[in-house]
Amino acid sequence: MNIFRLCGDMSHLAAIIILLLKMWKTRSVAGISGKSQILFATVFTARYLDLFTSFISIYNTCMKVFFIGTVYFTIYLIYMKFKATYDSNHDSFRVEFLIVPVGGLAFLVNHEFAPLEIIWTFSIYLESVAILPQLFMISKTGEAETITSHYLFALGSYRALYLCNWIYRYYAEGFFDLIAVVAGVVQTILYCDFFYLYITKVMKGKKISLPA
């Protein structure tokens, strides 16, 4: 564990808590993409299959349980409890255009052609594009609530911090995982234009409003 990875995990944790607070306080899921949350649930389920078979640390297990629990709770809030406020017309990204290529790529490019390894690789590739339905929805509605902007900033920062973690681990431990790094770079790049909007607007107290 190193400071970059710890900050990354805390940023990820903060993003999920911000999202839950937004939904619970406003009792609304307006502006939130249910499809992205379904993709995140798929990512966590595929990546944490070893939750019960390999114990790494209390921290690791607690975070995995928290991430899986909260993402499914989020889906429950979007599609059941606050269903009336879910904006399905704008949440229209075709996720099959993500899942099929990512699934195929995981079969072709992986560290080891073994079931668990391919599923882990699938979760890494899927996570890098899982935010697309959410960003697509914001571009369609043309705006994002400030709290949703904070959620996306924390979520984007988490993988950017993981990139720093991988740089540190490369020099400190000689650890290097090309698949995780390439997917992490793609994932972080997808947030770049949002980061620009966030820093130039939200930091100055304005709302994000994209040219629709």
Binding site: R5, D9, H12, D50, S54, I56, N60, M63, K64, F67, H111, E112, E117, W120, Y162, N165, G174, F175, D177, A180
Partner: peptide, 10 residues
């Protein structure tokens, strides 16, 4: 480096 401790990250 063994494969499984590659997966010590979240």
């Amino acid at each position: 480096v063994e494969l499984d401790d590659l997966k010590d990250e979240l």
